[in-house]
Amino acid sequence: MTVLVTGATGFVGRNVVKQLVEAGVRVRATTRRPEAAHGLPDGVEVAGADLERPGTLETALEGVGALYLFPVEETAEEVVALAKEAGVRRIVDLSAASVSVGLHHNPVETVVEKSGLEWTHVRPGGFMANMLQLWAPSVRAERVVRYPFADEPMNLVHEADIAAVAVRALLEDGHHGRAYTITGPASWTVREQVAAIGEALGEPVRYEEVSRERARELLKAQGGFAAASADLMLGFADYDGGAASGEDGYSDQDWSALERPWPDLEQVLGRPGRTYADWARDHIGDFR
């Protein structure tokens, strides 16, 4: 069986590809920019395709039995229809834990469920890797992190664990019709996260608490992902990118449900999730 991995150069997608190859599966990986596919394992077939232009996926879907679907709402119906027509039997889609607690509706899930194919939703909480793109530049340059929310707990999940759940659902029976909420094994404050990065480096990393407004200025100046995600990460915009902070109608109780560990990851994998300290050690090269 060939498994098609869309969004294959993203944090989760790269890990899905790697773990499928380690399982001995034939993998085809799609990306809008094939030149960005460096670092994927040997033997992976890379196909240039764009989920925002579904027609570009037709060739990539040939001979595919299972599909890991990165969510693009605007074209989900057409992409899933093409997959079904091509003979795909199973779809595992990347969603979000906010769906599990009623904070967000993901139309991609609805499309996948209505397809008549085997489906599994993988709903991760906040990615540990998001902070990599926000903090790594200042850690590399100055051994410092400037960010608000010093002592607010965050339950974050390792991208390799999200991928591991997705891979099980792609390769094993028994996951059809399930929605897995994937969290880390414990919450970590920003202060604790920075300390873990310093411990992994074996050098002190200073934490300077700044206001949300100042953090926003710093991230916007940094450019790239940091600039693009600053409003969302700092609470100036809600998950859907619409309402301003405090105007989204969500209660603190809703959000607190995502701060506790959920059991799904351990039930699927038979082990606890990786900790933030594990993640920091795995990414030591990025911070150094």
Rank of each mutant, 00 (worst) to 15 (best):
M1P: 13
M1V: 08
V5E: 07
T6C: 11
T6K: 10
G7M: 03
T9E: 02
V12P: 09
V12L: 12
G13N: 04
R14T: 04
V17G: 14
L20K: 10
E22D: 14
A23N: 08
R26H: 07
V27M: 14
A29W: 01
T30I: 10
T31K: 13
T31L: 08
R32T: 03
R32M: 01
R32I: 02
R33F: 02
P34A: 07
A36F: 11
A37Q: 10
H38S: 12
G39N: 12
G39H: 08
L40F: 14
G43Q: 10
V46G: 13
V46R: 15
V46W: 12
V46C: 12
D50K: 14
R53D: 09
P54Y: 06
L57Q: 09
L57P: 07
L69A: 13
P71N: 11
P71L: 15
E77R: 11
E78T: 11
V80S: 08
A83V: 05
K84R: 14
E85H: 13
V88G: 02
A96F: 10
S98G: 12
H104P: 03
P107V: 00
E109R: 05
T110A: 13
K114P: 00
G116A: 05
L117W: 00
L117R: 02
W119R: 03
H121C: 15
V122T: 15
R123M: 02
R123G: 00
A129C: 04
Q133Y: 07
W135L: 11
W135Y: 13
P137T: 04
P137F: 05
S138P: 00
V139F: 13
V139H: 15
V145P: 03
P148T: 10
P153F: 01
M154F: 05
L156K: 07
H158L: 01
H158N: 08
D161S: 03
A164F: 08
V165G: 09
V165W: 00
V167I: 14
R168T: 14
L170M: 15
H175T: 09
G177D: 02
T181M: 10
I182G: 14
G184L: 09
V190Y: 06
E192T: 11
E192G: 10
A195N: 12
I197D: 04
E199P: 10
E199Q: 13
Y207N: 06
E213G: 04
A215E: 04
A215N: 03
A215T: 05
R216K: 14
L219P: 00
A221W: 14
Q222R: 15
G223L: 09
A226L: 05
A228H: 05
S229M: 11
S229Y: 01
S229G: 00
A230R: 05
D231L: 02
L232G: 11
L234D: 03
G235T: 05
A237Q: 09
A237N: 05
A237G: 09
Y239N: 06
Y239P: 01
G242D: 04
A243I: 07
A244M: 01
G246F: 02
G246E: 03
D248L: 06
D248E: 13
G249Q: 10
G249V: 07
D254I: 03
A257N: 00
V268A: 06
V268F: 01
L269I: 11
R271S: 05
P272C: 06
G273D: 01
R274Y: 07
T275W: 08
Y276K: 07
D278V: 02
D278L: 07
R281V: 13
I284E: 12
D286M: 04
